[in-house]
Design a protein around this nucleic acid. Structure first.
Length: 441
DNA sequence: AAATAGGAAGACT
DNA sequence: AGTCTTCCTATTT
């Protein structure tokens, strides 16, 4: 079993190190990156315990060290942990500063120990460690490159954008299933994260923890890595690394996906990103997936056709993720983009969003929609619609119902009373509603 | 006047 | 079948 670079290496939380710090440029730091991760953040570099048998002459890669070559490779190992990518071990060792080897019993041990130490002391860079900025940047560059490759692979497998803010609700689900699978997080209820990427990115760490008390931190940390990675790439400082291409990898993507899906037959089905399958290969309605314990959490699966071309070769799974976010739903862009966004890209599964989910999306973006809907008491899931006309208009746009108004919207809300999704507050106030547990989480 | 409440029927998936 | 959407009348704020 491969060992991931786990909390023992990049345990960001206990060390107060930040992923964004790895960029070495504070200008690229995301606001959310200031959170100290208390849980492990995986970077795909094998631990010292992994069976390195590198022969210097062959300049093996990290990938090589954990994956048998040829068709006989053990796919289950690939699936049970994030795939390893070809970063030459010797290169990493060569680029490590000398300080990294002191006090360790073997080279790899020194690498991990030193890198951990480096991460620990990043915030006190000029402190006792006294690593040169150049050396530090070498290591952070390697780490970020590995992270970036992981993200590229996941994007290609899932057919989603690198940028989480581009994700539709279906993309968010896909990312969740992938992450849950990769990091074996059995206690995640995906339905608690039924939102698009913009809404997801606006969630705080506390929001994650509320939705997933056990693994929320890890998920939040993972999302933050993605956000940071895309920020780095956008800022153009991504270490002259070309995007990872599946065809360049020696990773057996087909095998990976077959294992991932648990259904070889799915390869022959038409490509469909939303055709999620459960652990026995049954498609679930509306792409519904659940990673909760007892429902096949550890085996969250996808239709492996999602990235298969007609010849069984992995291909990029469409660019349809182009626009399903709410972030441009402000007053100015509503008009300019209306036809394209709501007549076109909103079709299909994305129109399945429920009103209560939509309202939560708006509520999760107070900077954008705080003037029309806001929480009155977040802990009790009490919110107020401040601008009923605008909220109704936004809802109508999302559902492609131009005639939507607050009268109709409120009728839908009132249906929720019977369903136990919403309720009126104790002291009835106009335009004030309350989510029933757990819908307000 | 605007919001609330809920019945009824139809659309849509 | 479930979730709205649409239309409606009556009531409350």
């Amino acid at each position: 079993m491969n060992k991931l670079l786990d909390s023992s290496l990049l345990s960001y939380g206990n060390t107060s190190a930040r992923l964004s710090g790895l960029t070495g440029d504070s200008s690229t730091k995301l606001a959310s990156s200031t959170v100290s991760y208390k849980q492990s953040v995986h970077v795909n570099i094998p631990s010292p315990e992994s069976s390195f048998s590198s022969t210097p002459a062959e300049s093996p890669t990290l990938y090589d060290t954990v994956l048998p070559t040829s068709n006989s490779r053990n796919v289950s190992n690939i699936v049970s942990s994030p795939p390893y990518l070809p970063v030459p071990v010797e290169e990493i060792k060569r680029e490590l500063p000398d300080e990294f080897s002191s006090g360790c019993t073997n080279d790899l041990g020194s690498f991990y120990g030193a890198l951990q130490n480096l991460v620990k002391t990043e915030d006190e860079f000029a402190g006792p460690c006294q690593l040169s900025q150049e050396k530090f940047q070498q290591v952070q560059s390697l780490a970020m490159e590995q992270v970036s490759r992981d993200i590229d692979l996941a994007c290609q497998v899932l057919g989603i954008s690198r940028d989480p803010t581009d994700w539709s609700a279906a993309d968010v689900r896909a990312w969740f299933v992938w992450t849950v699978k990769q990091y074996n997080l059995p206690n995640i209820l995906v339905d608690y994260f039924a939102m698009d990427g913009v809404a997801l990115c606006s969630l705080t760490e506390e929001d994650f923890q509320r939705r997933a008390p056990r693994d929320g931190e890890t998920l939040f940390a993972q999302l933050d890595i993605w956000k940071t990675a895309v920020n780095i790439r956008k800022s153009g400082q991504n270490m002259s690394m070309s995007p990872f291409r599946v065809e360049d990898s020696i990773l057996d993507i087909n095998g990976l996906l077959n294992q991932w899906s648990g259904s070889v037959s799915a390869v022959s089905t038409p490509p469909s990103r939303t055709n999620l399958v459960d652990t026995v290969g049954n498609k679930m309605p509306n792409g519904h997936i659940s990673a909760s314990a007892g429902s096949g959490c550890g085996n969250g699966t996808f239709d492996s056709s999602l990235i298969m071309g007609t010849e069984g070769l992995p291909v990029l799974a469409s660019s349809k993720y182009a626009n399903d976010s709410l972030h441009s739903d402000d007053e100015t862009s509503e008009d300019s983009c209306e036809v394209e966004r709501f007549a076109g890209t909103r079709s299909g599964s994305h129109s399945h969003i429920h009103l209560w989910q939509f309202l939560k999306e708006l509520l999760s973006q107070p900077q954008m929609y705080g003037s029309c809907i806001r929480w009155l008491d977040r802990s009790k899931s009490v919110f107020k619609i401040e601008d009923s006309v605008r909220v109704a208009r936004l809802w109508g746009k999302r559902k492609n119902r131009p005639a939507m108004n607050y009268d109709k919207l409120s009728r839908s809300i009132r249906q929720y009373y019977k369903k136990g999704i919403m309720k009126k507050t104790e002291r009835s106030q106009r335009l004030v509603y309350q989510f029933c547990h757990p819908y307000g989480l």
